[in-house]
Design a protein around this nucleic acid. Sequence first.
DNA 1: GTGGGCTATTGACTTCAGGTCAATACGGGA
DNA 2: TCCCGTATTGACCTGAAGTCAATAGCCCAC
Lengths: 198, 198
Amino acid sequence: MRLENDQRRAQLLALARTAFSARAYDDVSIDDLARDAKISKGLLYHYFPTKRVLYVAGLSAIAAELVVAVTSIPADLAPIERARAGLDAYLEHITRHRAAFISLMRGGIGSDPEVAEVIEGVRRRMFDTFVVDSPFAPLLIGNPKFEISVRGWIGFVEFTTIDWCVNPRLSRAEIRDLLTEILFEVLRVVSPPVFRTQ
Amino acid sequence: MRLENDQRRAQLLALARTAFSARAYDDVSIDDLARDAKISKGLLYHYFPTKRVLYVAGLSAIAAELVVAVTSIPADLAPIERARAGLDAYLEHITRHRAAFISLMRGGIGSDPEVAEVIEGVRRRMFDTFVVDSPFAPLLIGNPKFEISVRGWIGFVEFTTIDWCVNPRLSRAEIRDLLTEILFEVLRVVSPPVFRTQ
DNA sequence: GTGGGCTATTGACTTCAGGTCAATACGGGA
DNA sequence: TCCCGTATTGACCTGAAGTCAATAGCCCAC
């Protein structure tokens, strides 16, 4: 069946997302995908020049959705509420797209620079959402200890979240509150004394 | 040149470790390795039945060395000193085997279960070293919030450490102390009030 | 020393998946 | 109805993983 460029592209992208979420990169063959789409392999290569490009396109779409979910929270919240709401959105989104999230974060192709860049982009956006946009950020940005700690906290979140996907021993609210609390403890540890209100 | 089984095996393992540390899994070909070892490809397959097995063998060796480095610290230290010493050994070892460490943690084959198991083994050993062997552990083990937090902290460490390898903005001692401090803050947050001495 | 057997070693072969390309089918506009 | 652009095909190429029957070198019994 002949399809318009955009429709065919969207169909292939959707198929790829499903396949790469369910199976590992190497376990998804282009022939399989073409067969699923009921087209020839040549046509698939007409739309995506390499398997890796197709994979990255799918991954980017997943990442973009995650970023939208996390960053579309009210801007006028207090820092701690902002973090809590962002984490809530993050966890909610992940709950609904478990397989996609895991394949995103586990990085099907460990060392591919483009894949790394996609994941890094998600982290940067999270960093911005949780910290840069907060009122005291201007005083913290540029402080290595601070920046390193916040990135470390993001590692904490990713780790915890992946564990949680596999084996949810705490409720979403509990995880959210735990991560929030730890973020602020971390900030307290690395902040200049002026911020240590407790 | 004809070699004894063990020697040939060791030679191939060493070559593989070097190659896989320097380049990505897919960028290392069996033909290359065989050529480097000045043997035929068939012989290589006589020693390691698949490329993946060879890769995992190299990775396991790297992981084992890291574990040895971290766990061979005096057993009679106070918990906080134990953690600090363990982290010091960890960072020292990583400094000396940067490429190997990064290839271990980035997981050249993201979704391979055996690779995941190797990395998971390292984490488990670190968990044990830093926490289980400490005096108050019996009261904390089994508490989900606690276990999740410590695993999260390990994520914090891995993240921070990889960043640090690429862009060392703090000294090793500073990173070590930061990670130690954060571990104890995390423990404080999730511990029953009885442990909150500060 | 020599013949026999064990094992390290070879190299040509197979397989399979990613990627290429010239040729074709289809549809809309003049 | 013809023409042209583009979606589509399928046969082909390539390179790397993995196989295997055959060989070469060494040690030991005689």
